[in-house]
Design a binder for these strands. Structure first.
Length: 433
RNA sequence: GCGCCGGUGGUAGAGCGGUCAAUUACAACAGACUGUAAAUCUGUCGCCCUAUGGGCUCCGUAGGUUCAAAUCCUACCCGGCGCA
């Protein structure tokens, strides 16, 4: 893998560049669609390539390890071949799942729940049942700190790794930094991530500090294992990115960035489950500290405004489930625009197609958008698909939302190269403020 | 014409003397979603108000029994089935 910075925006951390991989070039900054289980949900790879214009896709180690199993993907010739994606690929390490399964965060008002048991759902899948749902406030601090001692939790973290229950069949499994790297080598993505501990943003300072230290130790172990494995049987040369943690604490973020930045990683991931306010603080602290010549990926972010702020603060690549998840429930990103006769959708940056006002709205989703969905289908038709529960709705909206974010970031890239980043940033920011 | 069964909120369909403005599902209306346990989850869903409380109307229609009726009785109207 080779990273080249083409141009930098003056008085800003923003930069435009290229990441060259075995499977093609990623022009940065770039928004990378998430394809957790080796599929960007509801969208075929040729559409991701030709209609969304994505630079790469990101899959997940945890999910692919459980199903279909990393051996199968290795036999298929690696992730890209398996899913018919010829471009660059990423895999996340599974560290985030250790966090999200360990603390079970927010579905609706049941912020955190104790999982009572696993039950078979109507469609034959296995679902946990939430017998003693509690709000965040009611939970003991220890649970928020990841000290998940309860037998009923889905994951337990210790200094050596994470033991977790399969979301598919409840069986017990264990990830260590070494194991995560081994699995990721079998999956064979171009860019893989170190196995980190992602503490909940609500955890206290002491716990965050511990997570930073654990992440540092695990990072070294990942690097060792990665070097030991070399190019492996697949002969796919993966680049390994180290992950920075530290929550919302400046000293911890800088410490983590120095720790990880000093190691022999090909690039970096910034983890930690952010909300909007953290981009200008935590992300900035980290990017100021990291060595300039290696790419930075902001894990799990974001919304349009997050992407703009992320680029401005030195991030090169992003991934986020929001565009596809929102699409599946009928929500679409749009550029705010005054719409005559449509008071409530006027000026919005996101609309819900299930709202009654779109039943007979025959305009495109976003008249300023050049995606296939906007060029060919009306809001009324999309609204109908969602009301009728036709799966094409999810596909068409996913294409739009992905296109929207991918091209938003492409616009920023062009602006950086043309020396107009501040101007373009301010203009778009004003739209989304 | 006789007999039996049935008529419940937008729909289906529970309830069959008080805990019923009425279970549940669907529909409808709104909200949430940031390294995907997510084609998911949450809320509202008779009307009105000085709204974690109060008032009014309500289970085909009209009467009646009862302290109390969607629930029991009578008549009528409507629907289904059976027999003439």
């Amino acid at each position: 893998m080779r990273f080249t910075i083409q141009s930098k925006a003056p008085n800003s951390l923003a930069r435009a560049g290229t990441i060259e991989t075995l499977h093609g070039i990623i022009e940065t900054p770039a928004f990378i669609p998430v394809g957790t289980k080796a599929t960007v949900k509801s969208v075929a790879t040729d559409v991701i390539e030709n209609k969304v214009d994505a630079e790469a896709v990101l899959a997940n180690t945890y999910h692919l390890y459980l199903q279909p199993g990393d051996e199968i993907i290795r036999k298929a010739g690696g992730l890209g071949k398996f899913m018919n994606w010829s471009g660059p690929t990423f895999t996340d390490s599974g560290g985030f799942q250790a966090f999200s399964l360990g603390t079970v965060k927010g579905r609706g008002k049941k912020i955190v729940s104790e999982i009572d048991s696993l039950a078979v759902s109507a469609d034959g899948g296995i679902l946990p049942t939430f017998a003693n749902s509690k709000t965040k406030e009611e939970l003991p601090q220890a649970r928020g700190n990841g000290e998940v001692d309860s037998e009923t939790m889905m994951a337990k973290i210790d200094d050596d790794g994470v033991t977790f229950k399969s979301i598919i069949d409840g069986s017990e499994h264990r990830f260590t930094p070494e194991r995560s790297i081994q699995i990721q080598h079998n999956i064979g993505a171009d860019i893989i991530f170190a196995f980190d501990e992602c503490a909940t943003p609500g955890a206290d300072y002491e716990y965050q500090k511990k997570a930073v230290e654990r992440t540092r130790v695990w990072a070294e172990r990942c690097l060792d294992e990665h070097k030991k494995l070399g190019v492996g049987s697949l002969k796919l040369e993966s680049a390994l990115f180290g992950i920075i943690q530290g929550g919302r604490h400046e000293d911890l973020r800088k410490q983590s960035a120095q720790d990880i930045g000093a190691m022999d990683f090909d690039g970096f991931g910034i983890g930690g489950s952010f909300d909007k306010d953290d981009i200008g603080t935590a992300v900035k602290w980290v990017c100021e500290e990291l060595p300039e010549g290696r790419p930075r990926h902001l894990l799990g972010i974001g919304e349009p405004i997050d992407l703009i702020l992320g680029v401005a603060n030195g991030v090169d690549t992003f991934d986020c489930v929001a565009p596809t998840r929102l699409a599946r429930t009928g929500a679409a990103y749009i550029y705010p625009q005054p719409r005559v006769g449509l008071g409530s959708s006027s000026g919005k940056t996101r609309i819900n197609l299930l709202n009654a006002e779109f039943k007979d709205d025959f305009d495109p989703l976003d008249p300023t958008c050049d995606c296939d969905t906007c060029k060919n289908y009306s809001r009324a038709y999309l609204a109908h698909l969602f009301r009728a529960k036709e799966m094409l709705g999810a596909t068409l909206l996913s294409v739009h939302n992905l296109y929207f974010l991918v091209h938003l970031v492409k616009r920023l890239r062009t602006a950086i190269i043309e020396g107009k980043f501040e101007e373009v940033k301010e203009r778009i920011l004003k739209d989304f403020a």
